[in-house]
């Protein structure tokens, strides 16, 4: 049954409530890292980096299936799961940038991976079409041509990840009772 019809299902609601809380936790940890980047590198405002951002061409993870109108729950879930997987890898660049906060970044990677597999598990439990991801999709670490680009890259990854989580959170809340 399409996901939307299952909104009344108790297990599905429990899944939604749990992972809404999980998403809030992850958003809080991303915000904490954004404060570290601001304090450490004085990179705090995205509007000051629009020009150099074009150099880096850090693309956002699109969640168009999660936006209204045309909200498509199953496709949205797949996009959230894939996006979490992508950010799990991208955060490696942040890990390199903030060695003294490795614990927080690694926790973030673990949380992103857990949330992604929670969604994958729920889709499988509901018998939805699933694309299974290779467990470790570690592309080559991005090579920055300067420390400044690396710092800006880290800042933008976290900013994009925060926006991604905000959209994912609204989608989950839309389905939750």
């Amino acid at each position: 049954a399409p996901l939307a019809e299952l909104s009344g299902d108790q297990d599905f609601q429990l899944f939604l409530h749990k992972n809404l809380e999980f998403t809030r936790k992850i958003k809080g940890d991303v915000a904490a890292l954004q404060r570290v980047v601001c304090d450490t590198f004085q990179l705090c405002k995205e509007e000051e980096l629009l020009l150099v951002q074009q150099d880096l061409r850090i693309t956002q993870v699109a969640l168009e299936q999660c936006h209204r109108p045309g909200f498509q729950a199953e496709a949205c879930f797949s996009q959230i799961r894939d996006g979490l997987h992508a950010y799990h890898s991208s955060l490696a660049a942040v890990l390199e940038l903030l060695p003294s906060h490795a614990g927080l970044v690694e926790t973030l990677q673990l949380d992103a991976a857990n949330l992604s597999s929670n969604i994958q598990q729920q889709m499988e439990d509901l018998g939805l079409a699933t694309v299974t991801f290779p467990a470790e999709d570690r592309g080559p670490l991005p090579a920055f041509s300067s420390r400044f680009q690396h710092q800006v890259g880290g800042f933008l990854i976290l900013a994009n990840f925060q926006r991604f989580l905000e959209t994912a959170y609204r989608a989950l809340r839309h389905l939750a009772r």
Binding site: R57, T59, G83, S145
Partner: peptide, 17 residues
């Protein structure tokens, strides 16, 4: 989808020496 960064060392829009 992923972080697509300009690979290699080509200079960007600006640089400080």
């Amino acid at each position: 989808l992923l972080l697509l960064l300009r690979l290699g060392g080509t200079l960007g829009c600006a640089s400080v020496e």
